[in-house]
Design a protein around this nucleic acid. Structure first.
Lengths: 137, 137
DNA sequence: CGGTATCCTGAGAGATACTG
DNA sequence: CAGTATCTCTCAGGATACCG
């Protein structure tokens, strides 16, 4: 489980790689939503997420599809219909994401509080963590 | 567990908030390293991570400290010494991060493979997921 | 040693307009 | 409906130089 052990360095790369997908806020939302809805069309997803631009949703879905996490099924109809769903791999990803989700729900208040506390201690800045003026200890 | 249920919408905000920290690759590494090392000095961390710039490590540590995830202890000596460690909250975060880490280790190869597969199917582009020219189905 | 301040570049992301 | 193309702008993040 070492982070720096060269024999495990591939894990570091794997983490970075996966985090690039997880860190993308839309990706997590898409996986989460598809996980419980089963399958949705493009605009259904767009409406559900509410805040994502068409461009970002497209890019997000393409990346997820590329990584083998979501399926994309085109129905050659008029008007066109495209449905998205989770692959088996995508479903397994839901487990650790769920863990993170639960942790967030449980400790978010604590973080917000810690943040407010920290900011209150900073003399110069209002709430941004920009300048830290050696106060502490 | 609903992602869109308004009664749970605070969870969405919490997730976004937490993901902004988790999605930061350095944050995860710092938490992981501090978790197993217990406590480290600034340059020890910098050497261990190996690739992070001084600026980014400073910013990362400040944010983690602000969120109540790491402690920062200044020893007013000459030369100065500053030690970083995980708070109790930070230690609890290690659990879900560990889950994600394990998932990454287990499925990274599959993702890489899926990616190669996907790219191989794309006619115009070599390996970048830039242009998708309606091939599929 | 452990930072802070400043400059600079480019990837990320919204808005908009067009297409099969 | 489900995208693609382009333009723009912000800001994350590296390099560098200096300070307590």
């Amino acid at each position: 489980m070492s982070l720096t052990d060269t024999s495990q360095s591939s894990n570091c790369a794997a983490m970075s790689d996966v985090l690039n997908r997880i860190g993308d806020k839309w990706s997590v939302l898409v996986v989460g939503i598809l996980g419980r809805s089963g399958t949705l069309r493009f605009n259904e997803l767009k409406r559900t997420i509410n805040g994502v631009s068409q461009r970002m949703l497209t890019l997000t879905l393409r990346n997820l599809e590329r990584d083998g996490l979501v399926t994309r099924t085109i129905y050659p109809e008029v008007p066109p219909r495209v449905e998205y769903g989770l692959t088996e791999l995508g479903k397994t990803l839901q487990v650790p994401i769920s863990g993170l989700w639960d942790w967030s729900a449980e400790h978010h208040a604590t973080i917000v509080e810690a943040r407010a506390n920290y900011d209150a201690r900073q003399p110069g800045t209002d709430n941004a963590p920009a300048k830290i003026a050696y106060a502490r200890g």
